[in-house]
Design a binder for these strands. Sequence first.
DNA 1: ACCGTATTCAGCGCG
DNA 2: TGAATACGGT
Length: 782
Amino acid sequence: MSEILEKLNEAQRQAVVATEGPVMVIAGAGSGKTRVLTYRVAYLLELGVDPFHILALTFTNKASREMTARIIALVGNSEAKNVWMGTFHSVFARVLRIEGHRLGYPSNYTIYDSDDSKRVIRNLIKENTLDEKLYQPGYVAQRISAAKTSLISADEYESNPEIQEYDNAAGKPLTGKLYMQYRSRLMRSSAMDFDDLLFNMNILLRDFPDVLIKYQQKFKYILVDEYQDTNYAQYLIVKKLAANNENICVVGDDAQSIYGFRGANIQNILNFKSDYPDYKVFKLEQNYRSTKTIVEAANNVILNNKNQIFKEVWTDNDEGSKITLLHASTDNEEGNLVAQAIFEHKMNQQLPNSSFAILYRTNSQSRIMEEALRKLNIPCRIYGGVSFYQRKEIKDMLAYYRLAVNPRDEDALLRVINFPARGIGKTTVEKLIVLADEFKKSLFDLIESPPSTVRFPESTWAKVTGFITMIKSFGALLKTKNAFEMAKHIAASSGLIKELHEDKTPEGVSRFENLEELFNAVKEFTETPRTNPETGEIEENVVRTLDEFLQDVALLTDADFGDKDDTDRVMLMTVHSAKGLEFPYVFVVGLEENLFPSIQSLNSRTDLEEERRLFYVALTRAQVKLSIAYAENRYRWGNLTVCEPSRFISEIPEKLIDFPKRSQPKKESFMSSDNFSNMLEGLNLPPRKFAAQTPQKSSLQQNPKLPPPKPFLPPVDPAISSLPPSEIEDIHTGMDVQHERFGKGKVVAIEGIGPNKKATVFFSGIGQKQLLLKFARLRIAE
DNA sequence: ACCGTATTCAGCGCG
DNA sequence: TGAATACGGT
């Protein structure tokens, strides 16, 4: 019927055309999951289904954008744009803007991110004069979040004896009280946190039958991506929305469920058949991503898990090369081995940096990898870390925006009432908070219309009301100016720009630049046409205002922002953030017991299985070549700890692994490492710098002409370079040189010194190449 | 109000 | 180890 279907394999096609009734698609890694989802939407549209009746839910903005783009490519812009496609949070935030009044929220309610929530909780803990060491904001936040995710309200939490007992046993009997206070504080601020978006959506569907019916009729076809990652609140929303039509299609891979720790429930996918007895299941088992070696390794690893849906992932791709195991004596050496391996692959095969990814279990491992790459002048980009929107200067600026839109937002008010400093001190703020509690008013309402008993010193009161007046003036301009004009106005009137501009320290300059970035984002938003929240339709020529910007921004993360840096870099990220991505060359590092698997996972089978799925995710990111690495010694929390190789390594069949050759006595392996480990071993060996100057040859070498891999050779191995260090010094601009692969060339330029000495060489017929001399094996031509 | 020092934390983190 | 925040002194 349709040309759409021609580009699918049999299993994919079946999953796409089964449009009616409950469908579960079990999609192995690299099996074309997104393809099925996008083609299914396109197919529905082709069948004549109204795009407004299709709801497609994803977990990340990125996934949602990607799907939108692909559907547009298939069916064109006008149809695709009208599909309700987005993350759980963004879609239900939209619904709550429309329906939230039933629960007492205005349509301009503010969304608190997890930092905002924690700030509120921290303040509450202080106000209650509780011991901050016992009641850690993070802990309390997590308890509240877990409760909301399980749809337990503050009242239910407080009155539930089992929960009370649990908190008593934990020595934190007042957690429930904090939950109650937190709830009223947010309510008073007209704010919802991320969990509230899902919680309140559930309440709407539970308590307001007309709302339930309205959205059941609206969303006739529902698709859910990454179903294995849904938590209870998300699961229940989907179930309720789908209850009438049961045209629900969930796609996922139980083997890639790695978010149990934040409430994702793998049982949701395992229980699909009991929820929808007449369901159809389709398994996508052909992997299009990786070599046979990689697929086989991953299959064998995941086989060790008990709790899973049976499937057999296979591939038609080549056998590929074996998995390289890099064995280092220390974490620093691990970094060096990986960096060298990347360097050699790059040089031998002229690959871009972006074909490499280094994946680790914890963010703290990124620094060593970054340093090792820097030593070899390999540019890299670290994902994660402090997100753009979490930076203080951005949060401060956004707090002014938030106040303009919703002056009752107390978190925002407390953040900037005295920043830049305007003489409103701690004492004043504390008094105001006490009064706000007493009169059950938001801080803003209290200051705007104070009860007659409230008395403040004249000058103090002038400052406070001055601030409030400024906020009100922002609010008054909101609907007349566009977002960008408004942003500029607020930045100037609040004094924030001046404050930062005067700070000439490097940090200050960087903060200022971040604000410029924010303005760019606002400008871009201002120039993007509006989507009607009720219908999803695109409305041209409508002024975009700052309150709309804020609604968008609350649900964005840095992953949605700094993507402008598309320069060619090696990617460094945690395994978690690598999910859904693929790279030709992947290095999974830190494969040690207590690190990967993490020490916290060793107590329960469930946690260990999740950890194994995480390893499975790591392995299946690789397309061409996989390398895994571990170190014998590693700094953790400031001390050197001795590590054992991860059990996961032994779960990969030996025949798939290229083991490090141990032709040298073991102590030789310390020769290249950093000085600390040398001291440990009581060896008097060259200092740290030396490792960088004379890198070892890693076992990743692919050139068949070279001798077999010898990862632990002493530093000056003739196989590394035909050029001893002194000879490197002899290479100068203008010289004719000979390269093993590129032939004769002329040195155009020299830069860097010592180990990082680089030559730009022009090879006739090939062009200009940058070569790091210690690797390039250049000979001076006659 | 502000700065420098002390202390604390370190598992992964979508929205 | 290192960064981010809290505190205490001026």
